Simulated assay, not measured.
Amino acid sequence: MLDLRDAVFSTWEARVRERIVQARDVQHPILIDTLPAFYDNIAQSISPDYPRITAVDGTSVAAEHGGERARVTVYDHAALIEEYQILRWAIFDVLQREQVDIGHHEARTIHASIDAGIQEAVEAFSLVHSGFRERFAAALTHDMRGPLAASMSGLELILLSNDLTRVKTVAAKALTNLQRMAAMVDELLNTMAFHSGESIQLALTKVDIWEVAKEVQTDALAAHGPRIHLDGRSIVGCWDRAALKRAVENLVSNAVKYGAAGSPVTIRLDNVHERLLLTVHNEGEPIPPDEQECIFQMYRRAEAALSGQRQGWGIGLPYVRAVAESHGGSIGLDSSLERGTTFVIDIPLDARLVPAAPTLQTTNG
Rank of each mutant, 00 (worst) to 15 (best):
M298P: 08
F296Y: 05
P48A: 14
E285R: 01
L244Q: 04
E291W: 14
A193G: 09
L155K: 06
D186G: 09
R5A: 15
T109F: 11
E293V: 07
P264W: 00
R241I: 14
F92S: 09
T279W: 00
P288N: 11
R135S: 11
G365P: 14
P358W: 00
A193Y: 03
L221D: 05
A90I: 01
A255G: 06
Q201Y: 12
R52N: 06
T54L: 07
Y75G: 04
A139V: 00
S10H: 08
I295W: 01
F136W: 08
Y75W: 07
S45T: 09
G365I: 02
T266Q: 13
E68M: 13
R352V: 01
D346C: 09
V128P: 15
L230Y: 12
L87R: 15
T73H: 10
R145A: 14
L140T: 14
Q217F: 01
A351T: 12
E274L: 03
S60D: 13
A90N: 04
T59S: 11
Q85C: 07
R268L: 10
R301I: 03
T109L: 08
L175P: 03
F38V: 03
H111K: 05
D3W: 15
A62T: 00
W239E: 02
L4D: 05
E187V: 13
T141D: 04
E303A: 08
H195G: 07
A322W: 04
I158V: 07
Q361D: 11
I46M: 06
E274W: 03
R71C: 04
H104M: 02
P355D: 13
R71V: 05
L276T: 12
H281K: 09
A243Y: 09
I32A: 12
T73F: 04
R15Y: 14
R300T: 07
S113I: 15
H105E: 09
L164S: 11
I118Y: 09
V354S: 08
G284Q: 05
